[in-house]
């Protein structure tokens, strides 16, 4: 009843916010002194964060979906102490990818979810109905490019003099 499903394959954004608690997340975003955030479940709450904090800005790197799926699959099924050969189970995995364990999914499904998530982000910030203000709040950044660090610094801090000392990420 929850999680990424055909035909759209999007992570279950609504359910994730509901389970985390909208009121609690609102309070956290407004009062916890948050300056930067990455990893689950932040990417899955982009619309809520954008509406709650009109000053918040966002970054995304658009990887090749199949490369990402292979990387995620290999990492989460590896026999390391963290993923324990794919035994590691997580509620967010279910709500994001449709299976509690990545090992119960497959790279093709993961790639579909990846494409659906990036599409949802791009539609929201850069789609035809997005305002100019909303457009400027998302930086699409290739993390492998030569000056990725400088660009991210300038996006995060404005034209801060210290940004010139950064080059790659």
């Amino acid at each position: 009843t929850a999680g990424a499903r055909p035909p759209y394959w999007r992570p279950d954004y609504r359910r994730i916010l509901q389970e985390l608690g909208e009121e609690r997340m609102h309070s956290l975003l407004m009062h916890a002194g948050l300056q930067a955030a990455a990893d689950e479940a932040w990417p899955l709450m982009f619309e809520f964060i954008a509406k709650t904090r009109s000053d918040a800005r966002f970054v995304i790197w658009l990887r090749d979906a199949n490369d990402w799926a292979r990387s995620a699959w290999n990492f989460f099924t590896a026999p390391n102490t963290w993923s324990r050969g794919g035994a590691y189970a997580n509620r967010f995995f279910l709500l994001s990818y449709g299976s509690c364990r990545i090992a119960d999914s497959n790279p093709k499904t993961l790639a579909k979810v990846y494409r659906a998530h990036t599409k949802a982000v791009l539609e929201y910030f850069h789609g035809p109905t997005a305002s100019a203000a909303l457009r400027n709040r998302l930086l699409v950044l290739d993390f492998t490019e030569q000056l990725a660090g400088r660009k991210l610094c300038q996006f995060a801090l404005g034209n801060h003099a210290d940004c010139s000392k950064h080059t790659a990420l």
């Binding site: 930067a36 990455a38 918040a56 990402w68």
Partner: peptide, 30 residues
């Protein structure tokens, strides 16, 4: 500082983002 949020899913350089924003002196939740 207005918050900056990385929207890549896991294994899409989340650590690189968190390390870099911490290097910039930002309180980074990872």
């Amino acid at each position: 500082v207005p918050p900056i949020i990385y929207l890549g899913l896991q294994k899409t350089a989340t650590s690189a983002f968190a390390n870099f924003t911490s290097l910039l002196g930002l309180v980074t939740v990872h």
